[in-house]
Computed example of a mutant assay.
Amino acid sequence: MIKSVKKGALLILLPIILLCISLIIGSSQNIGFGELFHHIALELGISKDDVVLQGSLPTILWQVRLPRIILTFLVGASLASSGGVLQAVFRNPIVDPFTLGISSGSAFGAALAMLFPVMAVNTSAFIFGVIAVAVTYLVSCAGAKTSIVSMVLAGMIVSGVFTALLTVLQYLSDPYKLQAIIQWTMGNLHTASWQKVHTAIFPVLIGLFIIIILRWKLNLLALGDQEAMAVGVNPTVLKLILMAAATMITASSVAAVGVISLFGLIVPHISRMIFGPNNSITVWANISIGGTFLLLIDDFSRTAMPFEIPIGVFTMIIGAPVFIYLMRRNAINWNS
């Protein structure tokens, strides 16, 4: 009981601590904790001291770093939560949010909007991400039933088609637009702004709310359709609702920051390692660990070098060895 309370407190404290650390570090200028808390007190009207942050630091803190931190946490929580949901729905530990073609569909939509600016990049990426999932579902349908294996295979096919279409757009693009497309497909957090936060926050929060409300039923789906029906749950309807929520938050995240590879696959496994296979607990863990872990990676990507490396590169470089290590140590135990 005490250990569970400590783990729960850690899920709350870690994001708060890392948020404060992320605010004071950056490639432009670092500040101390005391200076940060003093300025927060001034903004809230708690302190009446006339001493304020000098120069452009207030703008850097509240208009550059804070929206990026919030957006990064939202995206990390979304991808991790989507991965955990899809792994429970498909009862497959190697499924991630991009299995259904969301990543390639959104990437194609964003590239299309960059090449032909008929609509906003975020809107186009979101629309084509949803289209990719819809096509995957329709292709995998066989009468009234949809096989898990057929849906995964259909997702791979749809993903391949959209990747091929993306390659065609890259071939047709001029060098400047080609560079923007390539940067977007590698993860693009350096353009984070309050506008992107406002665009992504509502669909992400709605999707996470649906997942949190239905988290108890994820355990039933993980046991199988027959077991779910035995207790009066319609597994088909439940799967569609959860897949729609996972699609919404993933497409919104990809539309906001681009493609971040491998993240939604690894974090759910880390959550299960720490908190066990109970989805009613790991849903909360995926939100906290996913947001915190991506924020940590982003802090490293924007401070390690004078120039910024896309975060998608770091998630692949860091995530792949971590996943291989866990797999080799048999730490990933889907049946535990």
Rank of each mutant, 00 (worst) to 15 (best):
T59N: 13
G129L: 04
L61A: 07
S106F: 05
S147G: 14
M156R: 00
V237Q: 11
D225Y: 04
F300S: 01
S56D: 15
A320P: 06
R328P: 05
M156V: 14
A120L: 11
G55S: 11
G207W: 12
A144H: 10
V233I: 15
V231P: 10
L165G: 02
V95T: 12
F209R: 00
H190S: 15
G76E: 01
S22R: 12
E35V: 09
I311V: 15
S78V: 08
T72C: 13
S104K: 09
I206G: 02
Q54L: 05
P67N: 02
M156W: 04
I12Y: 09
L294N: 01
I21Q: 10
G312D: 05
S78N: 08
F33S: 07
W194H: 06
M243E: 10
K6T: 12
G276D: 10
R272V: 03
R65V: 05
N219Y: 09
R302D: 12
I274T: 09
Y171N: 13
N30T: 14
S124P: 01
D96C: 03
L205M: 12
I212V: 13
R272G: 02
I213G: 04
L61K: 06
V161Q: 03
G207S: 06
I25K: 06
T123L: 14
K3C: 03
G155Y: 10
N122F: 13
I274A: 07
A107D: 04
M229R: 15
V121G: 06
I241R: 02
H39L: 01
V121W: 11
A107L: 00
M243G: 07
S103G: 14
I127S: 05
V64D: 11
G26W: 14
A111M: 08
M248K: 02
R215H: 12
N333E: 11
L166R: 13
S159Y: 04
F90L: 02
L23R: 08
F202H: 06
G109A: 03
S47F: 12
L240V: 08
T199C: 05
A320I: 13
L42I: 14
I260R: 06
L79T: 09
V197Y: 14
L115K: 05
T282A: 01
L169F: 06
T292Q: 04
I289T: 07
Y171I: 04
A134E: 00
P203V: 09
I127M: 13
F33T: 09
W284E: 03
V204D: 05
M305R: 15
I212N: 12
Q226Y: 11
V267C: 06
Y137T: 05
N92Y: 09
M273H: 09
